[in-house]
Amino acid sequence: MNILLTGGAGFIGRWVALRLLNDGHHVWILDDLSNGQESNLDEFRSHPGLQAFIQGDIKDEALLEKLFHETKFDICYHLGASINVQDSIDDPRTTFNNDTVGTFYVMEQCRKHWVKVVFMSTCMVYDRCTDETGITELHPTKPASPYAGSKIAAENMVLSYYFAYGLPVVVIRPFNTYGPFQKTGGEGGVVAIFINNKLAGKDLHIYGEGTQTRDLLFVDDCARFVVEAGYSNKVDGQIVNAGLGRDISVNDLALLVVGEASRIKHVEHIHPQSEIQKLLCNYSKAKELLGWEPQVTLEEGIARTEAWIKGRLVH
């Protein structure tokens, strides 16, 4: 198939690109490199399936029009977005324009050219989990940050194209994804930052009490889920979760990574109002409709991520 992947130079996007290429598709990657890095694509630069890398913005309507006009795409995997919760609180305009308005521009091209859409949303749209059965797709949403608000708005826009026009779309909500190629600095995920600090001999800093829990999904499992959602018509017009189905407190995660309680420090939370106290995924819908379930345990995923970060430090 001919596939357009927005945000393909990003952390998850890179893994999605790899999987699509390995599955034999022709892939066009569009990324403005505000989050992503072109070096993430180095490994498959010469892959015969990679048709083009376009450095450009999803808010550039003329660019989108040209792209869709020149190539008949079968699927658009739309991962391009502003993804930082803290940034969205400090600067809501940028996040709204990228995540909501940008998504509208992508949807318009997909409608005009009849291209299936896989829209990458986030578990951050959910209200806290209240029991051990986990968060299903019917769980209440709560836009605790402009990031979550922008994603919910975009989700509704995407789904409206299914109900109004019959366009095949699916909204996916992966839980906290981690693994190789995730940034290890301030914008990175908690696992990458913790491992990086451990290897650098630094303390691990936890915002607030550290009792908040996360359901951590290894990136290879996440990419497989993203790709499968595009291949199947069983999830058209649906919202689908993906996660490990196991949550861990940030305190326990820090201990799992570093192994020494003395190296864990608690610091004041910058934006405590956007914290979700308990995140635990119920992925039974993904399992039922897509036959998807996670294959990598948290312990194995952390080991693989640490090996990758170590390898980068050596170089």
Rank of each mutant, 00 (worst) to 15 (best):
W308L: 06
V106N: 02
K202T: 00
S34H: 10
V85R: 05
Q212I: 00
Y162W: 15
Q182S: 15
P146K: 06
E155H: 03
Q109G: 05
A144H: 01
D127N: 14
Q86M: 08
L64P: 07
E299V: 13
C76K: 05
N35H: 13
F175A: 09
V27I: 14
M124I: 06
Y161N: 09
V235A: 13
Y165L: 14
E65W: 12
H315I: 05
I309N: 11
I239W: 01
A303E: 15
V258I: 10
T95G: 02
L256E: 12
G13D: 05
T130H: 14
D215G: 02
M120H: 09
T133N: 14
M124K: 13
S39C: 14
P272E: 10
Y165N: 08
T177V: 15
K66Y: 06
S160T: 09
G102I: 00
R263H: 13
F225C: 00
R45Q: 11
F181N: 07
V117E: 08
F44Q: 10
G230W: 12
Y77D: 02
S82G: 10
L21E: 13
K198D: 06
I302G: 05
G291I: 07
M120T: 13
K72C: 01
C129P: 01
Q273I: 00
H47K: 07
A52G: 06
G301V: 04
E38N: 01
W308Q: 02
W114H: 14
P48H: 12
M120Y: 08
I152Q: 03
Q109R: 13
L20D: 04
A148L: 07
N197W: 10
E293R: 10
D23K: 14
R93H: 01
T213V: 04
V191G: 06
L41D: 05
S145L: 02
L216A: 04
K310Q: 15
N196F: 13
I152K: 07
V158D: 04
I12S: 04
S121I: 03
L253D: 06
F44L: 14
I152V: 14
T305M: 12
C129T: 04
G179V: 01
Y147A: 07
L30A: 11
G7D: 12
V115Q: 10
N40Q: 13
I89Y: 01
S249K: 03
D31K: 10
N196H: 15
K72S: 13
F73V: 10
V226A: 13
V227F: 12
R19K: 15
V250L: 15
G245N: 09
V314D: 09
D220Q: 12
N84W: 02
L298W: 03
E228N: 07
Q86K: 07
D87Q: 08
F225D: 02
